[in-house]
């Protein structure tokens, strides 16, 4: 069963004269980063792994990726299982090896040595925020709305072209930074 969460509006800082009409204009001009409805692919994981490479400071070696899902939502569980299946016993991307761990959203704020969070469809933003506050690690998702209107930091899309959207305010709120060059090559909102 699909569940819609109510989240407080994300505070915007500074002067952003186009902030109000940007989404509307984006809709008029066409979809920039289409929402992936299909199952996750290994390309999605590879893009996510590369994004982790551009964190400041960068990591190398093995990190545990918490794949967060809502157990009451079949689509969320299916996406989580698909992601975990793609990662298998550990997937190496560049200098990082990503180890999957399925985490129910209510357990996210609890103990765990996660290096990153992968948010699946339908996860509560309040629970995600609590988990991110607890772990202070990067959240990635395939669902643009979770970055545009939620607490997640990076939305990725690997087809038909790679697109990466970073919510800079969310990143700052959780003390997350990226390499300068990376920031120049992705869309920051």
């Amino acid at each position: 069963m699909a569940r819609k969460t109510t989240i407080p509006p994300v505070p915007r800082r500074g002067s952003r004269p186009f902030a109000n009409w940007l989404p509307a204009a984006a809709l008029l001009l066409g979809s920039w980063a289409p929402l992936p409805n299909q199952a996750p692919t290994v390309q999605d994981i590879q893009v996510a792994g590369r994004v982790l490479h551009f964190q400041e400071p960068p990591f190398s070696g093995e990190i545990v990726v918490a794949i967060v899902y809502d157990q009451l939502l079949p689509q969320s569980l299916a996406e989580a299982r698909a992601l975990a299946g793609l990662l298998g016993a550990g997937l190496t991307v560049g200098t990082l090896t990503l180890q999957p761990r399925l985490v129910e959203q209510k357990q996210l704020a609890g103990p765990g040595d996660f290096g990153a969070i992968f948010e699946t469809v339908g996860v509560s933003d309040q629970l995600l925020s609590a988990g991110m506050r607890s772990h202070r690690v990067l959240c990635l998702t395939r669902h643009l709305d979770q970055v545009e209107h939620g607490a997640c930091v990076v939305a990725i899309c690997s087809e038909p072209q790679v697109a990466i959207v970073v919510n800079e305010i969310n990143a700052s709120a959780f003390g997350l930074r990226f390499a300068t060059v990376f920031r120049m090559m992705v869309q920051e909102i």
Partner: peptide, 10 residues
């Protein structure tokens, strides 16, 4: 934040 991860030069 991490288990086996280590900081790296980039």
């Amino acid at each position: 934040a991490t288990s086996g991860a280590s900081p790296a030069l980039a």
